[in-house]
Design a protein around this nucleic acid. Structure first.
Length: 875
RNA sequence: GCGGACGUGGUGGAACUGGUAGACACACGGGACUUAAAAUCCCGAGGGGGUAACCCCCCGUGCGGGUUCGAGUCCCGCCGUCCGCACCA
């Protein structure tokens, strides 16, 4: 028996089979209990799971198992974000159909996930590429369309002229298509949009109420929405002869600095610039030059602020007879505000830089309120020589009727005057733009509309849904297979019955993932969501995923939920009540001398610390150990979870993923760490194996009298139970792991200890301790949990056993050890009764030898006693 | 540039609302068991100094100040690392 070991592979599949047979993890919703919806971001079916998945799904599983044991009806589903480009790329590269490739990947990954022993309800599995799913998505779209949440208009897109396709911004690298390498063009295409910008204010405001979201994510969304309040107003333009030449509309959040205006500028894409360029060759050349140079991020960063005069001037709205030059400038964006600005170099860094290069006047119009007299004059005189503008609080100067006003008051005054003149309005601008959802792709959800020459855009009637993808498509040519399919796009107009053409664009795959959490509530319903189920389960109580989705996916889902509410498909606005973003899994990188990457499994490591050396296992070539980076295929620093599961089992990999690193931070994968987890699995098993015959039998009554040792053990057990519960509840899995380690040591010291051989109370308390320990680690290592649980004589599965309740009476320790300080320095410690009086503690503390020595006979000024914490003697 | 997070032993990290800094783990060293190894178990360990020894003293949570009886924790100012956004008017 001493030689026996826990055979993880064998026992894990055993318990998985039993859970499966008993349908333990199929969602229960009729028990009338409280509900808990825990969801991890569903994976893209790339074909293999990676460590990031393991970490993500393990965390979710601990929560799910914990909540289930706590008596909640738990919804813990899994599905596949199954549409998208990789399937088409595989089709192009290997001639396999995207559907075939995708479903094969799903099968492979499902098997891998099942091997992890996750308590998922597989009966609710869904794949977004399944017509059953996307049919409902099409229904949602039609309802959104009817509700005015969708628009169709022309927009600029990144167009790859070789692949004949639109590229997402991330797919454009240095101005070139990531696949074709062709220079990407900006094209105007008619596109479908979700009107998310109409909800900008609502999406921004509601962030404050998302208390269980990381502050970081809320902040990122806030920045992304980018609200700014200001004034949009018109300025008079005058031509070279001084005659009126129309108006220039600008947006500013600092209209108070209007008296500091020394120039105006428009974007190179602004109609005024384009018009002026027609008769101004030099200007045209400048605009062309800007277009060419402005693609790469690096170029943008280093680009100096340049401009070219339009040959027009702009009249100052409040200074009779004053006018300023008008430029086309490379730093003014067409996509924000009106594409035109008034330049105030005094209090805008960009304008300041611009004017310094071009030698334009700089007039400070705001000064710190405490400056006056000579100091103020000095401030004004030295202003142009500063390196940076002043943009702090202050009062207006050099500004006629605004002089002496605060910035805020001046803003109001200028806004009031423009409004009175009928030339301006207060306006709120958002950076958030509408969500373009059209993709010229095959492997996505078809947009259910028909284009008719006579009737225009006609929605596909619900009776004709779903619009399914044709099977017979080819990928041998670039472009959209749907578009060149012989017959698919031919359709009769639902309105007039005449010949018409199907929309051949498909949805951005972010559409698919914007509502899957709602679909999980009723995955087989013939409506997008069955309201009763959704009203019960939503919102998701705990959503867990990578921070890389902090903006797009989470913002889109928030929009979608609101849109679903508007169209009666949901009863709430916010889909995710609690959000947790876990860190990445990192690993060392390895390179050969020639710079090529080497996979960890091909590397042999020797030595330690600075003397660590790495060689190539096969060739013996010298390998350079590189920095620790996120596991990625491109750097070949991945470790395949399947190998680890095959070697050590699921519990080991799960335990390692939860150990050490706080879950929101990155974790470094190390072989030593996994081996440590493996040893602990064995150690727990051996402990329970040893304990089974030593502790009292299963079901024994608690002895009437417990020895001090037994009581002490019970206290430790219950306090541990309490702290581990709290750690899991707050997702501090690394802390929970540490506590289990600690508790295990305590039990090991008791079980089999001859000192307690005849102490039935200790043996009873030891059983209690073992059982509580199993409960604690059972949510993290569920197979080992079941194994140990049954070893101790239980027939009922651990997965069916409620979470134990800590006995409040046992949570307080009778004796506490507190530190005794003299002048804030710890000199000794004191063990006293938990409820000892301040006076008693003080008296006892002042008798301690170390304390007396530290006092050295000096006068005691004060003694601070904080019961159960500390004593501080001040001399 | 703007915004945010973080900085604790050789390493990952603990430390509740300010109250014994370094829990727990990894790596390391020593020992036990063994013919040997693996596995396992026990012990040690922030740095420095003192003592024959039980032990004792000094320093120590990026750096410099401050508040407090008491600061890893709070405040001010630096430095560094990471992340997000980026000419957003």
């Amino acid at each position: 028996m001493a030689q026996s070991r826990y055979n993880a592979r064998d026992r894990e599949s055993h318990w998985q089979k039993i859970w499966d047979e008993k349908k333990l993890f199929v969602t229960r919703e009729d028990a009338g209990g409280p509900k808990y919806y825990v969801l991890e971001m569903f994976p893209y079916p790339s074909g293999r799971i990676h460590m990031g998945h393991v970490r993500n799904y393990t965390m979710g599983d601990v929560v799910a198992r914990y909540k289930r044991a706590r008596g909640f009806n738990v919804l813990h589903p899994m599905g596949w974000d199954a549409f998208g480009m990789p399937a088409e790329n595989a089709a192009m590269a290997r001639g396999v159909h995207p559907a075939e490739w995708t479903y094969a990947n799903i099968d492979a990954m499902r098997t891998q996930l099942k091997a992890l022993g996750l308590s998922l309800d597989w009966s609710r599995e869904l794949a977004t590429c399944d017509p059953e799913y996307y049919a409902q998505e099409q229904k949602l779209f039609l309802d959104f369309l009817e509700a005015g949440l969708v628009s169709r208009r022309s927009a600029k897109v990144n167009w790859d002229p070789v692949d004949h396709t639109v590229l997402a911004n991330e797919q454009v690298i240095d101005g070139k298509g990531w696949r074709s390498g062709a220079l990407v063009e900006q094209r105007e295409l008619t596109q479908w949009f979700f009107k998310i910008s109409d909800m900008a204010e609502e999406l921004l405001q509601a962030l404050d109420a998302l208390k269980r979201w990381p502050e970081k994510v809320r902040l990122m969304q806030r920045n992304w929405i980018g609200k700014s309040e200001g004034l949009q107003f018109k300025l008079d333009v005058i031509d070279a002869d001084g005659g009126p030449a129309g108006e220039l509309e600008v947006f500013s959040t600092r209209q108070d600095t209007i008296f500091g205006m020394t120039f105006c500028a428009v974007s190179i894409d602004h109609p005024l610039a384009i018009e002026a360029a027609k008769s101004n060759e030099a200007l045209g050349a400048y605009i062309e030059e800007c277009r060419r140079s402005g693609t790469t991020e690096e170029a943008l960063e280093k680009a100096e602020k340049t401009g070219h005069e339009l040959g027009l001037r702009v009249a100052h709205p409040f200074i009779e007879g004053k006018s300023v030059p008008l430029f086309a400038a490379n730093f003014v964006l067409m996509g924000y505000g009106t594409g035109a600005i008034f330049g105030c170099p005094g209090h805008d860094q960009r304008d300041f830089d611009f004017c310094k290069t071009l030698g334009i006047d700089i007039i400070p119009v705001v000064a710190p309120a405490d400056l006056s007299g000579p100091a103020l004059e000095e401030y004004i005189a030295a202003y142009s020589d500063r390196a940076e503008i002043y943009d702090g609080e202050g009062v207006l100067i050099n500004s006629d009727f605004l002089d002496g006003l605060t910035i805020e008051a001046a803003k109001q005054e200028i806004a009031r005057r423009f409004e009175a003149m009928g030339k301006g309005t207060r306006k709120v601008n958002y950076r958030l733009r509408d969500w373009g959802i059209s993709r010229q792709r095959y492997w996505g959800c078809p947009i259910p509309v028909i284009h008719c020459a006579g009737c225009g855009v006609v929605p596909v009637p619900e009776s004709q849904l779903p619009v399914t993808l044709p099977q017979d498509v080819t990928f041998d040519k670039p472009g959209n297979p749907l578009d060149r399919h012989a017959t698919w796009k031919n359709a009769a107009c639902p309105k007039c019955g005449g010949d018409a053409r199907r929309e051949t664009d498909t949805f951005d795959t972010f559409v698919d993932s914007s509502w899957y959490f709602a679909r999980f509530c009723s995955p087989r319903a013939d409506v997008p969501v069955a309201r009763e189920a959704a009203d019960y389960w939503l919102p998701v109580d705990q959503y867990i995923g990578g921070v890389e989705h902090a903006i797009l996916h989470l913002l889109y889902s928030r929009f979608f939920t609101r849109a679903m509410k508007q169209t009666g498909h949901a009863g709430l606005s916010e889909p995710f009540d609690g959000l947790f973003t876990q860190g990445m899994v990192n690993h060392e990188t390895y390179k050969l001398q020639d710079g090529s990457w080497v996979t960890p499994s091909d590397v042999r490591l020797e030595g330690e610390g600075g003397a660590r050396r790495a060689t190539h296992a096969e060739t013996g070539a010298r390998v350079i150990i590189g920095p620790v980076e996120k596991m990625s295929k491109s750097k070949h620093n991945t470790v395949d979870p399947e190998d680890i599961i095959g070697h050590f089992g699921a519990d080991t990999i799960r335990w390692f993923m939860l150990s050490d690193s706080p879950p929101e931070r990155d974790v470094q994968w190390t072989d030593a760490g996994v081996e440590g987890a493996w040893r602990f699995v064995q150690r727990l098993w051996r402990l329970m194996d040893r304990a089974r015959d030593w502790i009292v039998p299963h079901g024994s009554e608690m002895p009437g009298e417990l020895s001090e040792a037994a009581l002490r053990l019970r206290g430790v057990s219950h306090r541990r139970l309490q702290s581990v519960s709290e750690a899991i509840e707050s997702l501090k899995f690394n802390v929970a792991v540490a506590q289990v380690h600690e508790f295990t040591r305590v039990i090991e010291a008791v079980v089999g200890n001859p000192e307690f051989e005849n102490d039935e109370g200790v043996k009873w308390a030891a059983r209690e301790a073992c059982e509580l320990a199993i409960g604690m680690f059972g949510s993290m290592m569920p197979h080992l949990g079941e194994e140990c649980w049954s070893m101790l004589g239980h027939d009922r599965l651990l997965a069916e056993t409620p979470w134990p309740e800590a006995d409040p009476a046992l949570l307080v320790e009778d004796m506490v050890t507190i530190a005794v300080q003299v002048n804030g320095k710890r000199r000794d410690e004191l063990t006293v009764a938990q409820d000892a009086s301040k006076e008693d503690i003080e008296a006892a503390a002042l008798k301690l030898e170390n304390v007396l020595r530290a006092i050295e006979g000096r006068d005691i000024k004060k003694v601070i006693v904080v019961p159960q914490r500390i004593v501080n003697v001040v001399v």
